[in-house]
Amino acid sequence: QAPETKIVDKSRVACDGGEGALGHPRVWLQIPEDTGWVECPYCDCKYVLKGSKADAL
């Protein structure tokens, strides 16, 4: 199944896999201003900063 994409309001987000005990260790991710998105290294969930150029795609 394809990784999930989430639109977020802040450039710093936490990801834990979203499945409680079945998820992964919580990691904090920083969305770079130049790209407007970041992917979780564990679950490949893509976080897109709302209003960024990546959000316009």
Rank of each mutant, 00 (worst) to 15 (best):
Q1E: 09
A2I: 11
A2V: 11
P3W: 12
P3G: 12
E4A: 14
E4C: 15
E4Y: 15
E4D: 13
E4G: 15
T5P: 12
T5F: 15
K6E: 06
K6T: 12
K6C: 10
K6Q: 09
V8Q: 02
K10R: 11
S11L: 13
S11P: 12
S11M: 11
R12E: 11
R12P: 15
R12F: 13
A14S: 09
C15Q: 00
D16S: 10
G17Q: 04
G17K: 03
G18L: 07
G18C: 15
E19M: 08
G20P: 03
G20C: 05
G20H: 05
G20T: 05
G20A: 09
A21R: 10
A21L: 11
A21C: 00
A21F: 08
A21Q: 10
L22S: 11
L22Y: 10
G23S: 14
G23K: 14
G23N: 09
H24Y: 05
H24D: 04
H24V: 04
H24R: 05
P25C: 08
R26S: 01
R26E: 01
V27A: 03
V27L: 06
L29D: 00
Q30H: 10
Q30S: 11
Q30A: 07
Q30F: 13
I31T: 02
I31C: 07
I31A: 01
P32R: 06
P32A: 06
E33T: 10
E33N: 06
E33G: 07
D34L: 10
D34Y: 07
T35S: 08
T35A: 06
T35Q: 09
G36R: 02
G36V: 05
G36M: 03
G36I: 04
G36K: 03
W37I: 07
W37E: 05
V38H: 02
V38R: 01
V38M: 06
V38N: 03
E39T: 12
E39R: 15
C40H: 08
P41F: 06
P41K: 04
Y42Q: 11
Y42K: 13
Y42N: 06
Y42P: 05
C43M: 01
D44S: 15
D44K: 15
C45D: 00
C45A: 15
K46H: 07
Y47V: 02
Y47E: 11
V48N: 01
V48I: 13
L49Y: 07
L49V: 09
L49E: 14
L49G: 12
K50Q: 09
K50E: 11
G51Q: 04
G51H: 04
S52I: 05
S52N: 02
S52H: 04
S52R: 00
A54R: 00
A54F: 03
D55C: 09
L57N: 12
